[in-house]
Amino acid sequence: MKQLASLYSTLLDACGLLAGFVFVLLALFVSIDVVIRNVGLGNFGWLIEISEYALYGATFIAAPWVLRLGAHVRVDLVVGNVPRRAALALEIVTDLIGLAISLILFWYSLAATIASAESNSLIFKDLVVTEWWLLAVLPASMALLAIEFVVRLVRAVRGRTEAGNDTVLDGL
């Protein structure tokens, strides 16, 4: 169990780092594109399309990691100003709602992915991309988010609220 938990942590960490790496690659490739175009060596025709998919993929892949860090901003007006027991109860309620949201979206994004795969949908831009490969990121992300909400829930039921530890520091 402990090994599984640490494996899961490593997976989430890797997702976060991957997202950051994607952003660094975007910076690098767009810069190179500007330079080679301006010296007349052409351009990367596929760069915009890849950038769009990368931005989408990175966001959903790393969203569970961000939840693990408690870095999804929240309004802690109420939670921060009620007695500890009430705060714990609220934490349990919000974790349950979060879990429900993740599960519902998991189910319907899976449905969307399967529907797209069955009808063999292709996206025709510069590249021809199989649509369900892209859509499949959604159920994967939602499944990880659901697991993360369960982890938070267990923690809250055991009497430890994460609200106090959440890094509200991380904004813009």
């Binding site: 660094v24 990691w65 961000v66």
Partner: peptide, 10 residues
């Protein structure tokens, strides 16, 4: 990279 990912993804 990590700090950028954290805020940008949020």
């Amino acid at each position: 990279m990590r700090e950028t990912a954290k805020i940008a993804v949020m």
